[in-house]
Design a protein around this nucleic acid. Structure first.
Length: 137
DNA sequence: GCCAACGTTGGC
DNA sequence: GCCAACGTTGGC
């Protein structure tokens, strides 16, 4: 199983919005970036991802799961753009801030740090477990 | 609010 | 196919 990270500006689409959608989930639409789209095409059902609040908060707040494979983005007629559906799994016991990630050696190579503008990105297994354990500390 | 980084567009 | 111009994102 692969791990990912989904970035969202909370005033547009927040963790609470995601949770409100429940088990049905919601499509991760609006992505207009080829790299991000390609990652979504690679996603499989059951893959998990971090839900990250950009801009004001800059922290990972919860865990989501892919519940529909890549399909055309309903917010555009442009057939180039596809997206997956994701549903909220659980909030992190404690949000992990970008600051904290940057200060952790084991996380210094994260795409989040290296390429801050990419809105959908892969997370390595070691990074995933490190962040999960940090959130429980 | 600024600006660096990056991606996309379009003229040549 | 190159690259300058432009637009957008997101950290600061």
């Amino acid at each position: 199983m692969a791990y990912w990270l989904f970035k969202s500006e909370p005033s547009v689409w927040s963790w609470d919005d995601q949770v409100a959608k429940g088990a049905q989930g919601e499509e991760w639409d609006g992505v207009r970036n080829y790299q991000a789209r390609n990652f979504m095409r690679e996603m499989k059902l059951g893959d998990q991802g971090f839900f990250y609040h950009s801009q004001k908060d800059k922290e990972i707040v919860g865990i989501v799961e892919v519940c529909a494979l890549a399909h055309p983005d309903s917010t555009t007629d442009d057939e180039r753009w596809e997206c997956v559906d994701i549903k909220a799994v659980e909030p992190l016991a404690r949000a992990i801030t970008l600051d904290e990630i940057k200060q952790d050696e084991a996380l210094a190579e994260m795409v989040l740090v290296k390429n801050s503008r990419l809105s959908v990105q892969p997370v390595r297994d070691a990074e995933w477990s490190r962040i999960v354990s940090l959130s429980k500390s």
